[in-house]
């Protein structure tokens, strides 16, 4: 434990569940999610807020969990990829569309892609292709060539619309 540095009491909500932890102030949200809460769906790659693999939603907004301090999540709601499917395991329409459109290969970028897309669809339920491209600009995929990802987001938008 840290010598002389007091732990910070952190209460927040992760995927709908209340969580209380004592953290060290310098811990990133990705460290807390992966190492303390075992939520390893959040991936870490570049660590400098460029690639988007670590994207999670905090109060609905995408953040880079690699750099965002867990301290900043206090009293907020965090959504990770583990929290997206229904409790019975039914995939969220975005997850299903990524499967259907083969929008991933190695899958390392996928949790971040899906959460970034989820934030977009919350704000713009039927985005144009241009809006999808602009909004997903900060998420890098080294496998798919992006087109299947754009198609999956369009498909999920349609599915979500017919669902509501």
């Amino acid at each position: 434990m840290s010598e002389g540095i007091p732990l910070f009491p952190l209460s927040f909500e992760v995927n709908g569940r209340a969580v209380e932890l004592e953290i060290e102030p310098q811990e990133s949200l990705a460290e807390v999610l992966r190492n303390r809460l075992n939520l390893t769906g959040t991936k870490v790659s570049c660590e400098v807020q460029v690639c988007g693999a670590c994207t999670v939603l905090v109060d609905g907004l995408p953040v880079s969990a690699c750099t965002f301090l867990a301290y900043e999540a206090r009293n907020k709601k965090v959504l990770t990829i583990e929290g997206l499917a229904a409790p019975d395991g039914t995939l969220h329409p975005l997850q299903q569309a990524f499967v259907d459109e083969s929008a991933f290969q190695c899958g390392f970028c996928t949790p971040g892609m899906i959460l970034a897309a989820r934030a977009l669809l919350e704000e713009r339920p039927l985005p144009t292709e241009e809006e999808i491209r602009a909004s997903m600009d900060g998420n890098i995929c080294r496998c798919t060539g992006y087109l299947p990802i754009v198609h999956a987001i369009q498909k999920a938008a349609q599915a979500l619309r017919s669902r509501s």
Partner: peptide, 9 residues
């Protein structure tokens, strides 16, 4: 400016 995650924080 930057990407959506950097703009959010």
């Amino acid at each position: 400016v930057a990407n959506g995650r950097v703009r959010a924080t």
